[in-house]
């Protein structure tokens, strides 16, 4: 039997009309934008299942663009997001499609930055505004964005992971969950590491300096708190 917080029952505070089609969509896009980083100039939203069928009626399109613009799921400006994106010169396209055997509320983002580089992120909105990300640039991952998350792309050599964990230990940051995905021994690997508390600037700097790490992203959770 699951445990519930009071605010799982009375909450989230959100922009309507639907926690999975609007709040969850905004959350997904906000995390996808953080994964991409940089100055975003164009986004393609590949919509699957119920997202593909009802995205206009539920305002899923507006919620997704709002997330790309870094808005929170309770931001009252959410409904104007497409206009704001236009004004900022960010191109958005919605493409209903079939992404295969995935959750009915799934979207694949193709996010292009001003340097021409593109990032692909896929994730699902699984109810009550909760989400999970399951693919980044073709690499399988799994995290929910509920906790501070560190995403690395690193060479799969002995000691890399212990370097990261000892930096976190020094900063007194507890690891809540950690998953490593790799194509083969010694090749490039991806790690999603969730922590209990915010990752400090100190720790971020030190982790970036680990030489086997090619790329690292720090994703802050979207916490409601007191609005």
């Amino acid at each position: 039997m699951r445990n519930y917080s009071v605010f799982d029952i009375i909450g989230p505070i959100m922009i309507g009309p639907s926690s999975s089609h609007t709040a969850g969509a905004a959350r997904l896009a906000k995390v996808a934008a953080a994964i991409s980083g940089g100055k975003i100039v164009r986004v393609e939203f590949h919509l699957h299942g119920s997202f593909a069928e009802t995205y206009r009626g539920h305002g899923t399109d507006k919620a997704l663009v709002a997330g790309i613009l870094n808005m929170d799921p309770w931001d009252e400006n959410l409904k104007n997001s497409i206009k704001i994106a236009n004004e900022r010169g960010i191109g958005v396209t919605f493409i209903p499609t079939d992404l295969g055997e995935v959750h009915p509320n799934t979207v694949k983002f193709i996010i292009t930055k001003d340097d021409g580089n593109a990032t692909q992120v896929s994730g699902s909105s699984i109810g009550g505004g909760n989400i999970f990300i399951f693919d980044i640039d073709g690499q399988e991952v799994e995290f929910t964005g509920e906790r501070p998350t560190i995403l690395t792309k690193h060479q799969d050599l002995p000691g890399v992971i212990s370097k990261i964990s000892s930096i976190l230990y020094q900063e007194n940051i507890n690891i809540a969950n950690m998953r490593v995905y790799r194509k083969g021994k010694g090749k490039m690997a991806t790690m999603a590491l969730e922590t209990d508390t915010q990752v400090t600037e100190e720790a971020m700097g030190k982790i970036k300096n680990i030489k086997e790490i090619e790329n690292v992203k720090f994703i802050n959770p979207i916490v409601e708190g007191v609005i």
């Binding site: 989230p12 505070i13 959100m14 309507g16 639907s18 009550g128 505004g129």
Partner: peptide, 21 residues
Amino acid sequence: EVNAAMGRIVACPTAGSCGIL
């Protein structure tokens, strides 16, 4: 109505039933 017009509400327990509580 606020919910359906993309205004801010509290899901309690859900967005569909946000008017009752």
